[in-house]
Simulated assay, not measured.
Amino acid sequence: MRIAIVGAGGVGGYFGARLAAAGHEVTFVARGRHLEAVRRSGLLVRSPLGDVRTAPGSVVESVADVDGADLVIVAVKLWDTEDVARQLGASKLAGTPVLSLQNGVHKDTVLAGHLPADSLLGGACFISAFIEEPGVVRHNGTLQRMVFGARHPELEPVARQLLQACTEAGIDAEVSEDVDRVIWEKYVFLVGHSATTTAVRRPIGVGGGAPRPRPRGRGAAGGRRGGGAPPGAPPPPPPPRGCCCGTSWRRRWPSPARRASRCPRTSPSGSSPSATPCPPT
């Protein structure tokens, strides 16, 4: 399978190197010192699952330099998506099936602004990897998973072909019939963890050992779930009502006196005779 990977960082570099080691024709699009190192010595992946190095020269500087591919994998940071989509739309790869392994739920919408919507597969990946130094990607742990799927029937053969390629490369991969749900589930997971690590001001490994980390993480994820959902998903339940004012009174005003003063039914300025006042306890 001929695969062009735009972005040779932790995600694109790792999965691309594994696919190349399995005999697939992989071309990376990279830049700067990383580009020069891969062009000179190949891309080295250091992993608990075994190190692998690609052949030197398997990299180009621009999307326009890629001669052709059966699949394009987009693995750049989310803020570069618009620029990459514009380059792909103006290149020989226009119309080629595209799979984004980026985080976020709007990535494919951005790509569809410059590429045919029926050329886009949906997907997500699960891995901890980063550029350790130019030309070297470090894989932490053993998790290395891709989930993808075709939103249009004509892309199903491409999804099956990629699944076969991943199997040959030793990559844990799955074709999903509801890939947008997978993308949203990962988004909720990341929002919960980022909120938790921000709250404790520690990396994820340290934050996980903080007092009561799991309840805090569940609360963060639950809050995000209430703020957004994939199209067609049922709406979340309404917040608890403890009073006519529609507030979650126990959580917001734990003091009975404070609740009474804030409730429009029991406060001096309250004028709603049919309302139920905030409970005193």
Rank of each mutant, 00 (worst) to 15 (best):
M1Y: 07
A4L: 06
G7Q: 03
A8C: 10
G12L: 00
G12A: 00
G16S: 03
G23V: 08
G23K: 01
E25Q: 12
E25P: 09
T27N: 03
A30L: 04
H34D: 04
A37F: 04
V45N: 00
L49Y: 03
G50D: 09
D51P: 12
T54E: 02
V59Q: 00
V60A: 08
A64C: 11
A64N: 11
D65P: 02
G68M: 13
V76M: 03
K77L: 07
W79L: 08
V84Q: 02
Q87G: 07
G89Q: 01
K92T: 10
A94E: 11
G95S: 06
G95V: 01
G95Q: 06
P97G: 10
P97V: 13
V98E: 02
L99G: 00
S100G: 02
S100A: 12
L101K: 06
Q102C: 08
N103W: 06
V105T: 14
V105N: 07
H106I: 06
G113E: 11
H114T: 01
D118Q: 06
L120S: 01
G123L: 07
C125K: 05
C125Q: 04
C125V: 12
I127C: 05
S128P: 00
S128N: 13
E132T: 05
H139P: 00
N140K: 12
G141Q: 03
L143K: 12
R145V: 12
V147I: 15
P153W: 06
P157H: 08
R160I: 07
L162V: 10
A165P: 01
S176H: 09
D180W: 11
D180P: 07
V182I: 14
I183E: 11
Y187M: 15
F189K: 04
F189V: 09
T197G: 04
V200L: 15
R202V: 04
R202E: 15
P203V: 05
I204N: 09
G205H: 13
A210S: 14
P211D: 08
P211N: 10
P215Y: 03
G223T: 14
R225H: 14
G226I: 08
G228W: 15
A229S: 13
P231R: 11
P234V: 01
P237T: 07
P238K: 02
R241P: 00
G242S: 05
C244E: 15
C245N: 10
C245R: 01
G246V: 07
T247C: 09
W249T: 07
S255G: 12
S255F: 03
P256R: 04
A257P: 03
R258Q: 14
P264H: 10
S267F: 00
G270D: 07
S274Q: 15
P277G: 12
P279S: 09
T281I: 09
